[in-house]
Design a binder for these strands. Structure first.
Lengths: 157, 157
DNA sequence: CTAAGATAGTCTCATTTGCAACCATCTAAA
DNA sequence: TTTAGATGGTTGCAAATGAGACTATCTTAG
């Protein structure tokens, strides 16, 4: 039988690495700002988009279950980090956007996270980083993992 | 402020990719063999090692909490997929190994998982795969993530 | 030898999260 | 228009998991 080495097995390595990297970042958003991962994802998505978007949209592009997003949205509303207005066209849906307070947090947090990311990737050369990102992109696309506009796939975001 | 793109942010991408890849594999060990992730990790570690090892060791090298491993071990013992014998030198510890039944399952499962892994990575060229694995290795080492023998780090496994 | 601290493993508890039922609203078709 | 099905979002519930207390055992210092 083919010799199997768990520690060479990419799915296992991805899991372990993702967990470790998340833990390394959580100091920034968890300890410092009291955000958990889903909350951070909501903030990040809203901060990145100029226009408001729905919970559904956040759920789809972050690949996070809608109930998890719903809970995160509720918590962020209570902390007044985001705002929610009814959608006139569809009264089931809401438009979400960062509040002034949320925007301030976002702009404070982002540089810290980018710095951490740079730290983590600093063991690679510039070319290696580029290749690594490209490989991630290829795998993502082949798994149909790249979300773009409201639930559709492919295309530049 | 530096423009931030969640979808270019490596920690986020790793999380999402790891989750997706795990889901893709779970059909094999979850649906087909009724193993959850921690159980599969125990099986994989025991199958890979020729000699018996402790729960502690499995916990350390898979980076899985000892209580999680403990539960997985209990479940696998009940299903008689693994065996446990007292360690003569240290009566707190147990030596774990695959049973005949467990070995059979292992040898059936491994080719399926390797096949899945190959599928997932088939979007990369051979060279890209090699570079990708090398980059993973560098990041793992820089995060001090490479476990080797009983709790020690570094060195070839 | 004894006591203090470390370590292996189990167990309880709290948290997190996915699933699925549910409500309200929208869309499409008869 | 009425009705069936789809969709956005919320919530109750159950499964999974990490933290940490706990027991038993081992190790080391005095």
């Amino acid at each position: 039988m083919a010799k199997f080495d768990l520690f060479q097995f990419v799915p296992f390595r991805l899991n372990r690495l993702a967990a470790e990297v998340s833990a390394a970042l959580s100091d920034e958003y968890q300890v410092r700002y009291g955000l958990d991962i889903p909350e951070w994802r909501v903030i990040a998505t809203l901060g990145f988009r100029d226009d408001a978007c729905s919970a559904q949209f956040i759920s789809q592009c972050t690949r996070t279950h809608k109930s998890t997003i719903s809970r995160a949205v509720t918590a962020l509303l209570e902390r007044e980090l985001i705002e929610r207005v009814e959608n006139e066209d569809d009264r089931r849906a809401f438009e979400l956007r960062l509040s002034a307070k949320g925007t301030a947090l976002y702009e404070e947090l982002i540089p810290r996270l980018l710095h951490k990311e740079r730290d983590i990737l600093s063991c690679l050369t510039a070319q290696e980083r580029k290749d690594f990102a490209a490989a991630l992109g290829k795998i993502e696309r082949s798994l149909d993992l790249v979300q773009t506009r409201h639930g559709q796939k492919a295309g530049a975001y």
